[in-house]
């Protein structure tokens, strides 16, 4: 299986084979990260620009370390220190960055569809690191990889996603991904956070958390976005924790061997209690480890080949191949 695309914009656009190929490649990179010398020369001479219009620690650091472990040069641009403050548009910023000939731009933006726009505009690869309420494909890939480390297949698994589904790009990417791999997805949260018609994406809605936990093999808690300033979707954090927070008491009704995921950063005591976050079922740290491997795999697959200027060039003959098996 090969992946032939310039950009990674969404899970929606990926086939099952592509998802499996990325995860399988990521498994190899995970081993690189366990070595003493955690670096391979694969992307020597390539340049990756991380363009982040929203705050991020985990994702940005993960993409940066991923690029560096592959020997690419990684440059981080966070909007607070950039010309965006002077009023430059995303398009102008991107065209100017492209003039410096990067091989890949990793974009996080508050507007859904911003990476798709850049992908069309630019010759270099674009990776969506989260766009508005649309998708966060690298997160879903690392989530699928993490679950697949514990289960041989997602076929028939019951996966419950709990929280603010309406504003969550993580939820959307995961609904697509889990569905494609054959899992049954249940969404749970207060009605103000579950969009009408979400069932059409292929998910069941359950407003009662205790019922949503019962029978679940995997529970993914979404972060309550306390920083987003908008019409309140729930009365108080305490009340939210009371009805939709995951705690030890609630887990009493859960299946044996239940796995718990959270994309981070967590609000301890709001959507997840500290005992659960640090408990034996929690895979939060595995998710971060796998995230790095997934991003290395994405760079390898998307920009490991010829630079865009060479794309047009003729196919090299296979004489360089060592294998005589022809």
């Amino acid at each position: 299986m090969k992946l032939k695309r310039k950009d990674l914009l969404s899970i929606e656009e990926l086939s099952v084979e592509e998802i499996s190929f990325i995860i399988e490649t990521a498994r190899s990179f995970k081993r690189v990260n366990e070595r003493d010398i955690k670096k391979v020369p694969t992307l020597r001479g390539k340049t990756v620009i991380n363009l982040f219009y929203e705050p991020s620690t985990r994702t940005r650091t993960s993409f940066e370390i991923a690029a560096k472990r592959m020997s690419a040069d990684a440059i981080n641009i966070s909007v607070s220190q950039s010309s965006v403050k002077k009023g430059e548009t995303l398009k102008d910023t991107a065209l100017n960055l492209e003039a410096m000939r990067p091989d890949c731009i990793v974009l996080r933006h508050a507007s859904s569809g911003a990476p798709a726009m850049l992908a069309e505009l630019l010759d270099c690869s674009v990776i969506n690191a989260g766009d508005g309420m649309h998708e966060h494909p690298s997160q879903a890939l690392l989530d699928m990889m993490t679950v697949l480390e514990r289960f041989d297949s997602l076929e028939g698994l019951n996966i419950t996603i709990v929280g603010d589904v309406s504003h969550s790009r993580v939820a959307r990417s995961n609904i697509y991904g889990f569905n494609k791999l054959g899992a049954n997805v249940t969404l749970c949260g207060p009605p103000t956070m579950i969009p009408h018609g979400i069932e059409e994406m292929g998910a069941t809605v359950e407003y009662d958390l205790d019922r949503a936990i019962r029978g679940a093999d995997v529970i993914m808690m979404l972060r309550i976005q306390l920083e987003r300033d908008r019409v309140p979707l729930f009365p108080t954090a305490r009340e939210y924790a009371d009805r939709y927070g995951l705690n030890l008491k609630r887990l009493k009704g859960a299946k044996e061997g239940l796995l718990i995921l959270h994309p981070g950063p967590i609000n301890r005591g709001v959507e997840i209690s500290p005992e659960v976050a640090d408990g034996p079922y929690s895979l939060l740290i595995d998710q971060v480890t796998n995230g790095l491997a997934v991003r290395m795999a994405l760079f390898y697959i998307l920009i490991g080949g010829p630079s865009e200027s060479e794309h047009e060039a003729e196919e090299p003959d296979s004489n360089g191949k060592e294998r005589g098996t022809a």
């Binding site: 299986m1 690189v32 694969t42 080949g305």
Partner: peptide, 19 residues
């Protein structure tokens, strides 16, 4: 694979095998 000198010349990336 990750140390090959011809990755730059390939349009599709070879699958990685186990080390």
């Amino acid at each position: 694979t990750l140390y090959r000198d011809d990755l730059n010349l390939k349009d599709e990336q070879p699958s990685l095998k186990e080390t």
